[in-house]
Design a protein around this nucleic acid. Structure first.
Lengths: 333, 333
DNA sequence: TCGCGAATTGGCAGCGCTGCCAATCCGATC
DNA sequence: GATCGGATTGGCAGCGCTGCCAATTCGCGA
């Protein structure tokens, strides 16, 4: 990108001022509708702006004024529906306020998260929105030193830098296990994706196993597939698990995509759901409700997290917002 | 967002210069590794930067230098996997070049797209990436006037402002119809989502119907669900369509999500796939491959579009890049 | 008609950084 | 030991806009 051609000279505020026959400050006041100016000045400026096709330069505006009206957002991935949903809630709330979100994707790599944090901070954002609670020391140091408000989203299981919005993944895992227990399942397995990178899936599993241990049964077996979650991984994972441990009567999946793959595995193998094998997911994605037997899962308020996170930026902000989650009974367990 | 607190005074480049005992220009040269400076100067600056925790202010840098190293991106939605995939390819390629992408979401609303375009241009981006070819006159005018390079992604069916990267949706529709025809299906229906907002789905349908008309059969019936595409919409859509027109032997869906819902409808109603009813989707999403009978669909190189679009920004750029698509035979048709 | 506070307005100094230019330094050459 | 070309370096003028302040104008009652 070395030969990016800078756009030629564009219309500036002082061009507008000259064209409108007023001072620069007046143009600035009119454009931002801030301070007082006469109707006549307003009209002349508006006319000049339209005629010249003036587009303000926010770079200059933010530099001169007090800070940029933008916030930095770091998410680990865009491949998992969770984050687009989060961003949707976030950007909707944000640009209702006229704030731009600048998004960075870390690919679940803490080092990249740190690099992105530094890069985003260099735009002097009004706030920084991170995902999860686990960051490098450098990320935390940067965030603190910058003095901007920091909001950590989605996870609630641990201490945050500043404000935290989300739900407890551990509690989700516990609730899922309790649900399966209450339904009488005892030979329970787990199919997940790479939980070293997806720490929150790991926390759910921990909560899940916790409850099973307390009940004296424990997880019979688990199959962890490398790479990101997907239906194909879920299908392959369940098939491997069942080959190894055919006496299972229920399987917990790291999320709905994995569970969908598991459901397909059952269809293909002719295992009745939930007669032969019960399935339980996570996220409450739309397709779960369309399945012949609606998927048993946990619905998470992803849009709401985004909205709340945005709200935290304006208010003085509670330090910790639990948006909760809902167990969806479905019919696969 | 009125009470955003501007961060207090932060470390500036001249603080670093003073601390390192060198001039500002030297610090600037060292930081950007541009121009020549001695080892000793480099070391002292690096030390001072680390000690002070200096984070450069790109607002100032971009204002002073020639343009910001960022590009504006407008997508219609984040709910449809297509766009996150696109963004993934795009941001990966982009930040390999050290360029930030600033993303705006238009919700399929041309007016919002125009507003976003103006907002993004006010950051003086090096380029503007839009989705599709249909824009308001205002959007096109803004884009042209800004003098930045404009890349329109995904759609190839029509004239572009500048550079265009994607595939022909019409051709996808045609290929899909030809595929179903070749398989011998004659009583073909369509289940889609709101195609007034999703213009590209409309173009696919147009191409599809074109082929059927040429074959002298035509589309028997179609069901358009309001709102965005989803498995639930697909299921409800297919159920409505079959209730009205039970003699159908194949259904074309506006995309794989809709087709997944259709598949679930078949499962629930006991319609054999493809014995009783053939299904055909669009996008080539992962779950299609995990289905008991892999979904017949068209795979689109979404990541590739992102990559190519990013590549267009550096090279002088072909005006028009066709990334093509692939028909996946699957087993549902 | 005059006076006065309020409304409106323009000038100008930065915001933090980069680009340009002139000054200084270095080692090596004669 | 003086000279020369290149490597290094610092000063300083903006980039386009906003915030502050002083100047000007306006409206209206006395």
């Amino acid at each position: 990108m070395s030969d990016f051609q800078p756009p030629g000279r564009l219309v500036t505020l002082s061009d507008v001022a000259r064209a409108a026959g007023v001072g620069e400050s007046t143009v600035s006041r009119v454009l931002r509708n801030h301070g007082s100016y006469s109707k006549r000045a307003g009209a002349r400026v508006a006319e000049a702006v339209a005629r010249l096709g003036y587009v303000p330069n926010r770079l200059a505006g933010s530099l001169a004024g007090s800070g940029a009206r933008l916030v930095g957002i770091v998410v680990p991935s865009l491949a998992n529906v969770v984050f687009p949903d989060l961003l949707r809630g976030l950007t909707a709330a944000l640009d209702a306020e006229g704030v731009q979100g600048v998004i960075g994707v870390s690919d679940y790599d803490p080092e990249r998260e740190e690099a992105l944090t530094a890069a985003l901070l260099s735009w002097r954002p009004a706030a920084l929105l991170l995902t999860g609670l686990e960051h490098t020391l450098g990320t935390a140091a940067l965030a603190r030193a910058s003095g901007v408000r920091v909001v950590e989203m989605i996870d609630l299981d641990g201490p945050g830098i500043d404000t935290v919005v989300g739900f407890s993944n551990r509690a989700v895992g516990r609730a899922s296990a309790q649900f399966l227990r209450a339904r009488g399942y005892r030979r329970i397995g787990y199919v997940g994706h790479d939980c070293f990178s997806d720490l929150r899936a790991g926390k759910r599993l921990a909560g899940f196993e916790e409850v099973l241990s307390e009940a004296g049964i424990g997880l019979m077996d688990k199959e962890i597939r490398p790479g990101p979650s997907s239906a194909t991984a879920g299908r392959a994972g369940l098939e491997a698990l069942m080959a190894r441990c055919p006496e299972l009567d229920a399987v917990y999946f790291s999320n709905d995509d994995m569970a969908l793959g598991g459901y397909f595995a059952c269809l293909a193998a002719g295992w009745a759901v939930p007669g032969r094998l019960a399935l339980f997911g996570f996220n409450g994605l739309d397709f779960g409700a369309a399945m012949p037997q609606p998927l048993a899962t946990v619905r998470t308020p992803r849009l709401e997290i985004g909205r709340q996170a945005a709200a935290c930026l304006v208010g003085d902000g509670a330090k910790r917002i639990d948006v909760g989650f809902t167990v969806i009974e479905g019919a696969t367990a």
